[in-house]
Design a protein around this nucleic acid. Structure first.
Length: 254
DNA sequence: ATGGTAGTTTGACTA
């Protein structure tokens, strides 16, 4: 079973590239972030034509998440059941695995209200996991975390030190999520520095490989033990009109 | 020094 996560930065703007990538890669599940479209305008048909089902939680202009899957998704939950209006979290069961597509807030800059919202969002997620998920079942938390877990995941650790995406408070909040019972399956297969999933559009970020690894899959032990490989598909970041993120793919034994 | 590129939307905000 192949599970992928990709922040596409608008599913409508990226549709030709997403269709091409699905045709080439043929994952069982693709979690999308930043779809940036209301549910009534989601391009369902283009996915259905490829044999995929669409399970979505969208909003206009900002945010929006989706689970694209070859088989039906059941027991779908959208958001944390609180008053937060931002569409950043959807979870459902696919092929016996609980799969979440999460778009963690960016946080803008340390010390801003958006950074406070980011830390609060992570705390609410941690509480949601305690109340509504089980660490002893197969679960994959897929998404754009907007957190580089450690300095191996950063092209210029000194320059990024204590900045948003790398701040110790964010990394501590991520560690609390992991402590609940999930692990970064990419790191189980690759320990070296310099492997990134996002590159800024500006100032030749991708050609210069000035990137961060902020997209990943955190999996419970029973699922991590089935993971036989994980990689970032850098090819999908190349060429004309790419997303600023590359897809991350993990493969699991049945 | 708060730049730069992209998407949505058509001015300003988010990333």
């Amino acid at each position: 079973m192949k599970v992928a996560t990709w922040n596409v930065n608008s599913v409508r703007a990226r549709l030709p590239r997403v269709v091409e990538w699905l045709t080439k890669t043929y994952p069982d599940v693709l979690c999308l972030q930043e779809t940036k479209v209301e549910d009534v305008s989601f391009p369902h048909e283009e996915f259905h034509n490829l044999g995929y089902q669409t399970t979505i939680y969208g909003q206009r202009t900002y945010n929006g998440v989706a689970i694209i899957s070859r088989t039906p998704v059941t027991d779908v939950v959208r958001g944390f059941g609180d008053e937060d209006p931002e569409a950043r979290y959807i979870v459902g069961t696919v092929n016996g695995i609980r799969v979440a597509s999460a778009y963690i807030p960016n946080g803008k800059a340390v010390g801003t209200d958006k950074f406070v919202y980011k830390l609060d969002w992570l705390a609410r997620w941690r509480r949601w996991l305690s109340a509504h998920a089980r660490a002893d079942e197969p679960l994959a938390l897929c998404g754009d975390y907007n957190i580089a877990p450690d300095d191996r995941d950063v092209y210029d650790p000194e320059g990024w030190k204590d900045q948003v995406l790398c701040h110790p408070d964010e990394r501590a909040a991520l560690a609390l999520i992991k402590d609940w019972g999930v692990q970064d399956v990419f790191r189980n297969h690759h320990t070296e520095a310099g492997l990134y999933s996002w590159w800024d559009y500006r100032q030749l970020g991708f050609p210069k490989n000035r990137g961060l690894r902020i997209d990943y899959l955190l999996c419970t032990k029973s699922l991590s033990d089935r993971c036989i490989g994980a990689h970032v598909d850098r090819e999908a970041r190349k060429g004309k009109e790419p997303s600023d993120h590359a897809p991350v793919v993990a493969e699991f034994k049945d």
